[in-house]
């Protein structure tokens, strides 16, 4: 690596355009809403600059706090489900024969390259009243009904009532799991792939069973990858806007939707700005946590 002073002109030419762009069109906008977050909402919804912490105080009032709490809760549940689905998935790919690894990995990440909006929309078609899931349930219901008819108990199942699967918190969680699963699987796969398999063999050799080996050796040695994937899936879920917007009900508003509402219909930009910064601070805290875990467990898994 060269010292920048050795070729100042070249350094400046290469750095300037991107730095300028990111300063003007990324940092200045953030600075503006940071300033707004201390401002006040005028009577017509215009923003008036001020120095008050009122917006932050409002952010921890009952209703916004409930929404923030719900966001954390939904993000946590969807991340846990992601982990439960993603760990076996990552292991299946990482332990597959060499020639199968890349094709399998491609299968896992391909959906991740299709549009977020479209992937979310696809779930509407599955979950709605006349969607695939209810269609399948109705079919199963019909089969069972016929079955009970055969054994002389017709009508036991009653009339089929399609389930309200869409526009509720469960639908939001399903959507978030679907959208974020690849983000969790990729770092997990990367660490599992690098894991020296002789650690697992040594554990088996010393008399531990498969489950014991999994919890005593595999999980501790892949902790950096687990933490990385889990926290990534978590911050993506926490900051989501589209998924609850399309799949959620009146009760499914998350912090992202609240921010959008303040910048949209409610036209309370100072409050929306304060909420944005609350969300960013939570995100930074999670990122900091991830960095701490990564640095504490660095070296583990590489020794030997």
């Amino acid at each position: 690596m060269e010292d920048w002073r050795k070729s100042k002109a070249a350094f400046a030419i290469f750095m300037a355009p991107a730095t300028f762009w990111l300063l003007l069109f990324f940092t200045v906008p953030l600075a503006i809403i940071w300033v707004y977050s201390f401002g006040e909402r005028g009577p017509q919804g215009q923003t008036e600059l001020a120095v008050s912490l009122e917006n932050y105080a409002r952010a921890v009032e009952w209703i916004p706090l409930k929404i923030l709490w719900k966001s954390l809760w939904i993000a946590t549940i969807s991340t846990v489900i992601c982990l439960l689905l993603g760990f076996p998935l990552a292991m299946g790919v990482a332990f597959a024969p060499k020639r199968w690894k890349n094709p399998l990995l491609l299968i896992v990440i391909l959906p991740f390259w299709t549009n977020l909006l479209i992937r979310t929309y696809a779930w509407i078609a599955i979950l709605r009243i006349s969607g695939f899931l209810n269609f399948g349930l109705e079919w199963a219901h019909g089969l069972l009904d016929a079955g009970f008819g055969v054994i002389g108990m017709p009508g036991l199942m009653g009339e089929f009532q399609p389930l309200e699967l869409l526009y509720n918190n469960s639908a939001v969680i399903v959507g978030l799991v679907y959208v974020n699963l690849p983000f969790l699987v990729l770092p997990l796969y990367a660490t599992l792939e690098k894991l020296d398999k002789s650690y697992l063999e040594a554990s088996l050799d010393l008399g531990a069973g498969q489950w014991r080996t999994f919890f005593s050796v595999t999980v501790p040695l892949t902790m950096p990858g687990i933490a990385s994937g889990v926290l990534l899936a978590f911050i993506l879920s926490l900051g989501t806007f589209l998924t609850p917007d399309l799949l959620g009900g009146t009760d499914s508003m998350m912090i992202g939707n609240l921010i959008a509402q303040e910048f949209g219909p409610s036209r309370d930009w100072p409050f929306g700005s304060a909420l944005s910064f609350v969300l960013m601070y939570v995100t930074f805290f999670v990122l900091w946590l991830r960095a701490t875990v990564a640095s504490r467990s660095s070296g583990v898994g590489e020794a030997g």
Binding site: D196, L204, S216, G301, E302, G304
Partner: peptide
């Protein structure tokens, strides 16, 4: 392998990096 009356010393040693020496030896 976990039910066989044999034990192995691996080429890479495979000493668990997240356990102390004593925990490694006592693991089995």
């Amino acid at each position: 392998p976990n039910k066989r009356p044999v034990n192995m010393v691996f080429q890479s040693y495979a000493v668990f990096p997240h356990m102390t020496v004593l925990d490694n030896v006592a693991y089995g």
